[in-house]
Amino acid sequence: MAQSTINPTTHDFSPIQEQRYLEPSTFWSIRQDFPKWLGMLISALALAVPIALWALVSYAGWVTPAFLPTPTAVFSAGMDMFVSGGLVIDVLVSCARVAAGFLVAGIIGVPIGIAMGTFYSMESLFAPIVGTVRYMPVMAFVPLIVIWVGLGEPSKIIIIFLGVVLYNAIMVADAVKFIPNEMINVAYTLGANRAEVLTRVIVPAVFPSVLDTLRVNISGAWNYLVIAELVAAQQGLGYKIVQSQRFLQTDKVLFCIALIGIIGLAIDYGLKFISRMLTPWADQTRN
């Protein structure tokens, strides 16, 4: 039977609420310790199950090879491309284009984002442009880019740049706005001027978020690679995908797509490692 207590001011009787304890859970724990072996097992299953389904459907002959080739055929086609198709050169060319476009997008987008998040005047200046242009499809700019800069490498780099730069700016600006005002006010109290607050408080505080933003948005650079290599390209993974598609070489298309995924995964883990080395204090908030 629930006990009752008397409110000393109103003399009301109210039941005492029983103490409820949260049952422990390993699988559904929220930001708590998680067994490393279990995480690796789940990751392995997440990759193994789709591959197993693909193998089952393709080897059983339920679909035609032109629609879905077998894993063996895809791997064999990829090895042939490496040996005789010059795929190594295509990988290096695509990586160079992505690196150039993404580097320029970081050099321009990150300072704009810091300025937008720090100064209301800069937000008023850049927000209308950034907020409008980011909804415009990059593909629509391709004819204009070809007219302005031609069919060479600059056009491909500009396409990758346009696909990433505005998202860098927006995400960095949002990260700056999450810096507590108390940190800025303490710096002013200790005698810092505006330049010192920007360089010694805001920039160090937002630096982990900048690294995470770059790590997330580099995937967008690879997504725009195929669009960029539609512009009179003669080499590159996107070019290989388009050429293989024209001749219904689905095995080569799938191998190039998988190769882009592997390269992107390696870059992602590399950037995670660099982030942990440069900003070890931010590990609790980093995914």
Rank of each mutant, 00 (worst) to 15 (best):
R134Q: 13
E123D: 14
G131K: 01
L151F: 15
F141L: 15
G150S: 10
L144H: 09
I179N: 07
I158P: 05
L144V: 15
F141T: 11
V142P: 12
F141E: 09
I147C: 09
W148E: 14
A175N: 03
I159F: 07
Y167G: 08
M136P: 07
V146W: 03
P128E: 06
P137G: 06
F178I: 13
V142L: 14
L166Y: 03
P128D: 07
N181E: 15
L151V: 14
N181C: 11
A140V: 12
V142I: 15
G152T: 11
S155F: 08
M136V: 15
P128I: 04
F126G: 02
N181W: 08
I129E: 05
V142H: 10
F178N: 15
M171F: 09
V146T: 12
I160K: 00
D174H: 03
L125R: 02
G150M: 10
V149D: 05
F126M: 06
L151I: 15
A175H: 01
P154E: 04
L162F: 11
A127M: 11
A169P: 01
D174N: 11
A173G: 02
A127V: 04
V172Q: 02
I129P: 06
V165N: 02
V176I: 11
P143Q: 08
F161H: 02
I160H: 00
I129T: 12
L166N: 01
F126R: 00
E153M: 13
A173W: 00
V130P: 00
L151E: 09
E123T: 02
V138C: 08
E123R: 05
P143I: 10
A140E: 09
G163Q: 07
G150E: 10
I179Y: 05
V172P: 01
E123A: 07
V176S: 03
I157N: 04
A175P: 01
I170M: 04
A173S: 12
A140W: 05
